[in-house]
Amino acid sequence: MTNQGHSSTHHHGAFKGLVIRLYSLGLLIAVTWISYCAFAFLFRSVFSPKLTPDRFTNRPLQLDLATLDGNDPSRMIDDGDTAPLDHYHGVGELSFGRFQTGCLTSGCHTILPHETDKATRALANFHVTFLDCAMCHRNALTKEEGIGWKNVSSGEPQSTPALLLLVSQFQGEELPEGGDKMIELVREAIEAAPPNPVLPHLLLQLETSEPASPMHRHALARLRAVLPSMAKGDYGAIIAPKNNTGYSTNELEPLIEAYFSPKDGGANRRAIQDKIHKNVLVKPRACQQCHDAEPTRIDFAALGYPENRIGPLQNNAIANMVQQIRDGKTFHLPNVLESPTDE
């Protein structure tokens, strides 16, 4: 028993000694590192000319895809910075990275994927932020197949985006009542929308005021004033077919990997490309299928679009205009402002 006690004490002492030695080793390494860093900093700060920190110099000079997708922190444009030099209009809220879904994540297509048709490429590109590629480019897609909203973050189907619902609620002459449901919608819109100081501020006002109080009404009035400017295609969700008749992601990923693989390059690449695009229409269907008085593919009302937006979207004039452009014709805006006497 005594021997066991001695042995235990001995083991305890040895363990404690080991801990102290390891701890001391840690301290030794720390002191060495700190001393090295201290001297390095001292020499650098005294004997090397000062350089302007990267964050002052690493600004994007031209607007490019890397800046636009907003995923590279070194290329982020802070609020208050000038835009890249070659771009005049503000770019504060741009973040295209979150729209990289489906084909845009493959590495083949960029976030501005339409490049070939000079006349319509910009017009086609602006659909990227709210329309799945399949809507125009998938073969054998019918209205009956079902169309709905797909969350850009999760890829899961979702109901009408909160921002559109908010816009719908403020269409009438009278201000809506506000209250908890309205607050919840604003909160959802904030989560879905890109960073913007306006909605959080109004949410705070709504949350901290009694419904029907002057402050609540004031916040609602301001909400009504700003909502139309916010409905610009960035709802945190895109319109997509409900049934995925093309490849699933699991099927597509190996094909994409094979396409980019050096060993499968060359002769196989074309075959892989064809396989990937087996259901894809290179030249999409006519614009009138969506933008028509009676669209054959999209039911804007069912998608939750506000009534006053549905009219322009289903306007024959617009569809005809775009179709004319696609057909290689030009379209002239009316000379609205200049009176005939100006000429």
Binding site: L65, I111, L112, A122, F126, T129
Partner: peptide
């Protein structure tokens, strides 16, 4: 008003955003 109204420039790098 639509954020995606733009295109990649002919040089394939810079973006023209409208």
């Amino acid at each position: 008003r639509y954020q995606g109204l733009g295109r990649i420039d002919e040089n394939g790098e810079s973006v023209r955003l409208f």
